[in-house]
Simulated scan of single mutants.
Amino acid sequence: MIEALAQLLGFSQAALLTGFTVFLRVGAAMALIPAFGEQGVPARIRLSAALAFTAIVAPLVAVPQATSLAGIALSLTLFSEIVIGLTFGFGLRLFIFALQVAGSMAAQSTSLAQIFGASPNVDPQPAIGHLFVVAGLALAATSGLHVQVAMGFVESYKVLPVGAVLGAGDAMEWGVSRVSAAFGMAFSLASPFIIAALIYNIALGVINRAMPQLMVAFVGAPAITAGGLILLFLSTPYLLSLWLTALQRYMATPFGG
């Protein structure tokens, strides 16, 4: 009986140390992951989600056994796991930034910056950006974001196992590539609105040159507003599907494989 209890105690201690090590990475990433790390989500919900992901990921990864929690706290593992978790979450958060930038570009191009208001609980976003973010989060959540995040954590341990140190040079190169990719995606998502605004301004300039007495601003303002709304209605499903495909592709190899 005593031997069984001793074995159970040893197993419980090993499971606790493994769970704590995994929680360091998962908990840090949960502050930035889309949907789970939004400012409107209560802290208790974030903590519960972090514990749930820890329980899912811990049995699927190989974690070196530590002697005690104090040993983990005094080692490099504590710092490195938190940095890797924040890096993982930052890579996902860039997809939300891409939607915000794309919405800002589209809104400024089509004069829709003040038609839709942003939520007072989050940072104010101009016009279409708020719609893009909310629709993107809803689409990602209904497409199995929780499963993809869990698998992304597992894949991250294959590239950066416990105890690995993320070098400053590699982190900078990865961060620059991800930021540039996010801005490229934002411009691609906003390109229909930018092209429409360019055509509108060229046409307005031609009409103004042909009929200087016509107040083209009064004629063109309703046209660009209506055109922007129609373009938003027609293009948003396709644009968000492209964004979701890019997000899922990134989740398959969160650190580049």
Rank of each mutant, 00 (worst) to 15 (best):
A14S: 14
F88H: 09
L198H: 12
T54V: 00
V133T: 02
L160N: 04
S109D: 02
F183W: 09
A15C: 06
S143W: 07
H130P: 00
G257A: 14
A35G: 07
Q148H: 08
E81A: 08
V133F: 03
L242G: 08
M251P: 10
Q39W: 03
M172T: 07
V83G: 02
T142D: 10
L94G: 04
F53M: 01
P42V: 05
A141V: 14
V149D: 01
H130V: 03
G220T: 04
A14W: 15
S104M: 15
A150S: 12
G257Q: 11
F233T: 10
S191F: 10
M105T: 05
A135S: 15
M251F: 08
L76K: 15
G103Y: 00
G175H: 09
L234N: 08
T77P: 04
G27D: 04
L247C: 01
L8N: 13
Q248P: 06
A226T: 14
Q13E: 14
I33L: 15
R249P: 03
D123G: 03
A140R: 02
V133E: 02
L8S: 13
A106P: 11
A164Q: 11
P64F: 02
V134C: 03
A28C: 08
A203S: 15
R249Y: 11
W243N: 04
L9P: 06
A106F: 08
I45S: 10
E3W: 11
V149R: 06
L16G: 12
F79G: 01
A190K: 14
G37A: 02
L51E: 06
S156K: 06
Q125T: 15
G152Y: 06
P192T: 07
A135Y: 10
V83E: 05
V159Y: 08
V154I: 11
T236V: 12
L9E: 12
A226C: 06
A6K: 13
L234G: 01
A6Q: 14
F23A: 04
P124V: 05
G91R: 03
I195Q: 07
V147P: 02
G167H: 00
V159W: 06
N121L: 05
I45C: 02
M215E: 15
S188M: 09
V41Y: 09
G10W: 00
V219P: 11
T18E: 14
G257R: 13
F193D: 04
P124A: 10
G175V: 03
A164E: 10
V216N: 07
A66V: 00
L234D: 11
V41A: 03
R46Q: 04
Q213E: 13
P34T: 07
